[in-house]
């Protein structure tokens, strides 16, 4: 079975480390990218099975990135799990409207994120 790839777009080093730990134990290959501007290119390059996307990124917002991803044919169907530390309803709504597969508010439980990832790439 081919190795499943997840691209984590996040700028907090400690959070990156935590997610990497959780997912790699489950057999995922975790690539990371921490800049908003070049995020879409990184997605094209890595062609991940799943994207975990933070909203508050340096230089470009996660929403804009999501919008681009959903607008492009090759990334149109890639599942995207959005993470945000701003847990307001309007953030969730915006994410869903833009086509996010799931939306999770920080802080999350490890089990929660693991199950969600498994679900999305079932």
């Amino acid at each position: 079975m081919e190795e499943r790839k997840v691209l984590l777009i996040e700028d907090e080093p400690n959070i990156i480390e935590a997610i990497r730990f959780i997912l790699s134990r489950d057999g995922w290959r975790v690539d990371t990218h921490s800049d908003g501007k070049s995020a879409v290119e990184a997605v094209r390059e890595r062609a991940p099975d799943l994207i975990i996307l933070d909203v508050m990124l340096p230089n470009r917002s996660g929403y804009d990135i999501l919008n681009d991803l959903r607008g492009a044919e090759e990334t149109h169907d890639v599942p995207v799990l959005m993470l945000t530390a701003r847990g307001q309803t309007k953030d969730r709504e915006l994410a869903e409207r833009l086509g996010a597969s799931r939306f999770m508010t920080k802080p999350f439980s490890n089990r929660e994120i693991l199950e969600t990832v498994r679900e999305l790439v079932g």
Binding site: I15, A18, A85, K106, P107
Partner: peptide
Amino acid sequence: RTPMTSIRSF
């Protein structure tokens, strides 16, 4: 929430 996330995860 950002530091909380790290704290919770770890």
